[in-house]
Design a protein around this nucleic acid. Sequence first.
DNA 1: CTGTTAGCGCTTTCAA
DNA 2: TTGAAAGCGCTAACAG
Lengths: 314, 314
Amino acid sequence: MQNRLTIKDIARLSGVGKSTVSRVLNNESGVSARTRERVEAVMQQEGFSPSRSARAMRGQSDKVVAIIVTRLDSLSENLAVQTMLPGLYQQGYDPIMMESQFDPELVEEHLGMLKRRNIDGVILFGFTGISEKILQPWQATMVLMAREAKGFASVCYDDEGAITSLMAKLYSQGHRHISFLGVPHTDVTTGLRRHEAYLAFCKKHGLTPKVALPGLAMKQGYEHVAEVLLPETTALLCATDTLALGASKYLQEHQASLQLASVGNTPLMKFLHPEIITVDPGYAEAGRQAVLQLIGQVTQARDLRQIVIPSTLQ
Amino acid sequence: MQNRLTIKDIARLSGVGKSTVSRVLNNESGVSARTRERVEAVMQQEGFSPSRSARAMRGQSDKVVAIIVTRLDSLSENLAVQTMLPGLYQQGYDPIMMESQFDPELVEEHLGMLKRRNIDGVILFGFTGISEKILQPWQATMVLMAREAKGFASVCYDDEGAITSLMAKLYSQGHRHISFLGVPHTDVTTGLRRHEAYLAFCKKHGLTPKVALPGLAMKQGYEHVAEVLLPETTALLCATDTLALGASKYLQEHQASLQLASVGNTPLMKFLHPEIITVDPGYAEAGRQAVLQLIGQVTQARDLRQIVIPSTLQ
DNA sequence: CTGTTAGCGCTTTCAA
DNA sequence: TTGAAAGCGCTAACAG
């Protein structure tokens, strides 16, 4: 680590001035092709790479962004992060990871650290309880995942479309008594929107809704699925894979057999219960979009778009 | 982000010189208590925090480390990383995350990026196929997880102890026909060592071993468990939770009921199959130790220890 | 087109 | 115990 070369060295080795090297480094115009080639050759040969800190100090950005997930082991967030990372590396950004554990105070704490570090941007996986006030300072440099907020860029899933297409599929299979296992309305996207889409479909098709909204945890699916099982029920729609996993454990234990459907399409689900009908909310695409949006935002002041990822029935 | 104060501002505001502020900042001796207090008060009040880049440029470290996991969704690695993060933040380090996807070339690529960034240290979750040559330049600044290598610090799990205590438990429950589902020997720790510990126990207690070593994936557990099911088999020991998950799906589908045991104790396992006997390899503790070791290494040239985390039967 | 010259915010001599 | 001054590696005027 010690004897890294500097532009000064490169300048000396290629017989030019520091600034010329700098120009080459930044692909600035105003350097003769010959000089540029020569300098590039030297850099190449010496394996030169400029000091990030020095560039950062010169007002350039640090090229560091943070990704704040709710939980490291969230199946869905993992899928999104998995596509974010390569996207960020490719653009030369270092992604630092933080875990909010669904705790608004932790988010605040983390954002505080990040503010102090003068980071370029943040991708935050939203959840219930984050006050917009805390986010305010980040308006220009944050992309919210799975959450919308006025004045913020965001990448959301198509909750309504996902639920509707699952319902349509179940309906077309002949199911007329479809129960719903979801998340409380305090969660606007996964909770409220998915529930409403379910209700809307029921209404439109004259079905009688039967609902429980226990929460996001597998255990909650397990413990509350019984509440929505009527004798006539033939299918169960779950707001998330995790919930479906919990429910299906219960169903298995109780020998109840009904058609399950859920929003998620996570690998775990596909393996454990391939018979479940799923819709892929487009986690991978969401990750890609989030990175594009964030980088656009911080480098070229792109406008704060609210992106919705279309889901695809599996 | 723009108008961050600098030590110059703090100096002015507290009526001292830049260097004094710097001394206070670094807790250097040679500053009168009065002056120090005054400066600290101003910093506090202005919410001053020094520029990382400037410090880094002055030869201080960047305070950035990388964590390279095999997969973002590895149940076990998640548990370790979960304790690493807070440990790192607390020491002022930023953890950047990378995913190797079990691909040695990706590791090489990532390490290349990191070298260029002049990072402080790396925590690398090992796997089969990483050539030690690639790691060589990182000897002093790397901690290997779940893998040992000559000249490298590492944090490993007590493979032998874990398997032995599970076997002892099964044995004490009266099981005498215990099969083993594991990982090929190319994986020295999870593969070879666990398998050997199983064989040793069998030998010592006069049991007839029955083994398959398909690999790490859930699907492999599912597909290969049948090979080790003899009519007399009453228990099955799996080298990992993931494998056990696959196996138990098969067993469930085939109505076969035997006592399962596995190394892992991941939340998913505990939820889906609480009846399985597990041993906790100490992932959380491993994460803590890895951070301590790495930071010790890079800040005070602590010697490269090879740490083994004791496992605990659940 | 290219080199020289100032700094960016900090640490680190070196004098006072 | 302190402050002034000299850089760290880089970029950005400003001259040639």
